[in-house]
Write a protein that binds this DNA or RNA. Structure first.
Length: 588
RNA sequence: GCCCUCGUAGCUCAGCCGGAUAGAGCAAUCGCCUCCUAAGCGAUAGGUCACAGGUUCGAAUCCUGUCGAGGGCACCA
């Protein structure tokens, strides 16, 4: 609908240029907006004001000529020039009525478009280290990322959803060692668990599996493990918890040997990764690919990336380490890619990973990170530029934290003690629908206050129930109609739609007409909250209509028109909720 | 100290690629069920868009500075 009007304006501009009235080197893309005030029509464009200066005309005069040059259209009732030079378009009611059968025919496809057709985009999100279960912070990234991906797919992009698995590196060694130490405790060894180890119950669970299935096969005397190990942080300034855990990792590798160490490490990794996969699947989040960091090292991709940097002269050696001169590309300081002990850094893997993403041919690469990683953006972009790639193909979206509230109090516990609210606990408490909806209700760069009581409440205060109830209400009316033996004319019969003249009906028609624009905007700007707001507004209009008018009236023609309208509204509600990964219940 | 994000009604937030009178929900006050689910609807009230400059026909929106909140500044991941 909006596109049709834009075409009319473009035609008019073309005519004015063709007959010499308007001298322009290039035709600008006309900006067309929904009006806020119905007195200003349905759509308004500021094109005359934008072009007035270079056309050396008064905005209103230019607007007048544009209006005269507009091609006739059945959808446009009249056009007005208003204010400083706005051109307001008033659409015909027939144009809105025609929408109802269009929506019914399109069904689940209504709102989908092809603006992204032929363009491949990758969305990488969550990518939490597999060192423990996902917590509520990851949940926001999961909900946000999956909805952004689904929105992009809805507007035609070829979307590839990916989870980057950090299955290499020190944190994973700490996990493996934590599991082993807990296992030793289960074997009866007495030891002091390192302050920097992973202390969650899930570590005990994995250790118990190891003990149950393999008995003492991995047992080593605690004295041997802790012999010569640097002292742990004693909480009074003495000791070094980092050196302590590193020594324990080294001891584990030495005492277990490669194969046995690897087994314990893999058991921890796979158990947790399986849990994360299961958790995300239960949350309605699916991936095309789980990309292993380890394969980057094993395939030589990391070395290749470093060599490319070296070949292009962007690295140097200092203090035994290899540094990437990221300051040449706007970063605050240079970054190490190979440590003095010969190990490549996490950053080196990340360079290789992003290089690989671009090499795989994605036109756009979207990374969704927690806001605490924002300092990381410049160096990754710097690396891509240094490699000669187009860093603007990478878009990093930062998601702020979610803070849980229960009874008006913060409900989130400390992550340090290993006790945190997991995503699974949240799902169990408020359900998948509410969790997803609440997570994407706010702009991603906005801190999210997640009100657990509200998410659980079965009242109109709860936006999820409110929207779902609107859907269920339509279903309920249809059940009533069926009970009373009222038949509904097939969707092809649109002859009575001109009976929809009430203000609530006109408001609903305008709202459902706007839906494709909302989906496109939400997708292109990666702003799912636009959709949640829209759905709340649409639900409100449906409820208002429901309260103001009876649908199942005796006048068969009017009744039929009203039922068709609410069927179309139901379809839009269903489609919108579907894009959010939220169910559309038939009754509540 | 440097960098990033944010600052809009009592609370939670939209609006931010400049546009016509700054919007919604909650909370407050007052109303609406012999009627398709009151898990609903309506009305009233509530604002120096943090502050100060600048850009222009026009600024909540763009730029600069100040203040305030959160986060980040490792040869960790």
């Amino acid at each position: 609908m909006k596109q049709d009007i834009i075409e009319l304006i473009r035609d008019a501009l073309g005519r004015l240029v063709a007959d010499g009235t308007l001298a322009l080197e290039a035709l600008p893309e006309p900006q067309l907006d929904r009006t806020r005030d119905p007195a200003h029509g349905d759509f308004a464009t500021n094109i005359a004001m934008v072009l007035a200066k270079q056309a050396r005309t008064k905005p209103r005069d230019l607007a007048q000529r544009l209006v005269e040059a507009l091609p006739a259209s059945a959808a446009v009732a009249r056009v007005e020039i208003a204010g400083p030079g706005f051109i307001n378009f008033f659409l015909t009611e027939a144009a809105y009525h025609a929408l109802v059968p269009q929506i019914m025919t399109a069904g689940p496809d209504y709102g989908r478009s092809q603006v992204g057709a032929g363009r491949r985009v990758q969305v990488e999100f969550v990518s939490a280290n597999p060192t423990g279960p996902l917590h509520v912070g990851h949940g926001r990234g999961a909900a946000y990322g999956s909805v952004v991906a689904d929105l992009l797919a809805a507007v035609g992009f070829d979307v590839h959803r990916e989870y980057y698995v950090n299955d290499a590196g020190r944190q994973m060694d700490i996990l493996g060692t934590s599991v082993w130490l807990r296992y030793l405790e289960l074997c009866g060894e007495e030891l002091t668990f390192p302050s920097n180890g992973y202390k969650g119950d899930y570590v005990w669970d994995i250790a118990a599996t190891l003990h149950r299935e393999h008995g003492d096969a991995y047992r080593v005397a605690a004295d041997a493990v802790f012999a010569g190990v640097a002292a742990d942080d004693d909480g009074a300034g003495g000791g070094d918890k980092e050196a302590h855990i590193d020594d324990l990792i080294a001891a584990a590798k030495r005492l277990l040997g490669d194969n046995r160490y690897r087994f314990v490490f893999e058991l921890g990794l796979n158990t947790i990764l399986d849990d994360i996969r299961d958790d995300l699947a239960g949350f309605g989040v699916d991936y095309q690919e789980w990309y292993s960091e380890r394969t980057l090292t094993e395939s030589g991709a990391v070395n290749k990336a470093i060599e490319r940097l070296r070949a292009s002269g962007h690295v140097y050696e200092q203090n035994g380490a290899l540094w990437f001169r990221s300051t040449d590309f706007g970063d605050e300081k240079d970054r190490v890619v190979v440590r003095d002990n010969g190990q490549t850094t996490y950053f080196a893997s990340d360079i290789a990973y992003h290089m690989d993403k671009l090499e795989r041919g994605f036109e756009r690469v979207i990374d969704i990170w927690g806001a605490d990683h924002h300092g990381y953006v410049p160096r990754v972009k710097a690396a891509l530029e240094a490699l000669g790639d187009d860093a603007s193909r990478l878009e990093v979206l930062l998601v702020q934290f979610a803070i849980l509230y229960r009874g008006g109090e913060k409900a989130q516990m400390s992550t340090r003690s290993g006790e945190f609210v997991t995503l699974r606990q949240l799902r169990e408490e408020v359900g998948r629908d509410a969790a997803r909806f609440f997570y994407v209700m706010r702009r991603c760069e906005q801190h999210l206050d997640f009100d657990l009581d509200l998410a659980k409440s079965e009242s109109s205060d709860n936006p999820v129930y409110y929207v779902q109830y609107a859907h269920a209400r339509v279903c309920s009316v249809l059940r009533q109609a069926a009970e009373r033996g009222i038949g509904i004319e097939p969707s092809a019969g649109t002859s009575h739609l001109d009976r929809l003249v009430e203000p609530q009906e006109q408001a609903l028609l305008r709202s459902i007409a706007r839906y494709p624009e909302v989906v496109e905007g939400a997708a292109l700007k990666a702003e799912p909250h636009q959709l949640t707001h829209y759905l709340r507004d649409l639900a409100n209009e449906l409820h208002t209509y429901y309260n103001a008018h009876q649908f199942l009236v005796d006048d068969a023609a009017l009744r039929d028109a009203r039922i068709k309208l609410i069927l179309a509204v139901r379809q839009v509600l269903r489609n919108g909720l579907g894009l959010l990964g939220v169910s559309a219940p038939e009754n509540m």
